[in-house]
């Protein structure tokens, strides 16, 4: 299953809830303001490092670049472009866009 998150984890608990409920082995894609979660030095970094043991975590590169953070991606998080976004949705049986 693919989980898509689009809110910063420091202002919204979607990512927290997703990490708590999602089944291990699933894909998590961080887009829009959720890309902040994928950057080093962010208060959420520890949780992402922990989550990397359970999930495949992806981040949408254009959203990272737009925010000036392309050089601060946490090791283990994989950047994807829009084509990669589409590949993730087709590779999974179902998908949830968390609000």
């Amino acid at each position: 299953m693919l989980h898509i998150i689009n809110k910063s984890p420091l202002s919204n608990n979607s990512l927290d809830s997703c990490l708590r409920v999602a089944q291990s082995g699933g894909d998590i894609l961080l887009i829009e303001d959720a890309v902040y979660a994928a950057t080093t030095g962010n208060a959420f970094e520890g949780k992402i490092r922990e989550a990397l043991e359970k999930f495949k975590i992806h981040v949408l590169q254009p959203d990272l670049e737009a925010r000036g953070l392309a050089d601060r991606i946490i090791a283990g998080v994989s950047p994807v472009d829009y084509g990669g976004f589409v590949d993730l949705t087709t590779a999974n049986n179902n998908c949830q866009s968390w609000l």
């Binding site: 299953m1 089944q23 998908c95 949830q96």
Partner: peptide, 14 residues
């Protein structure tokens, strides 16, 4: 909950 979620065809968030 996670297990149930995985079994769905469509998951809608509100």
């Amino acid at each position: 909950l996670g297990e149930l979620m995985n079994q769905q065809d469509v998951v809608l968030s509100f």
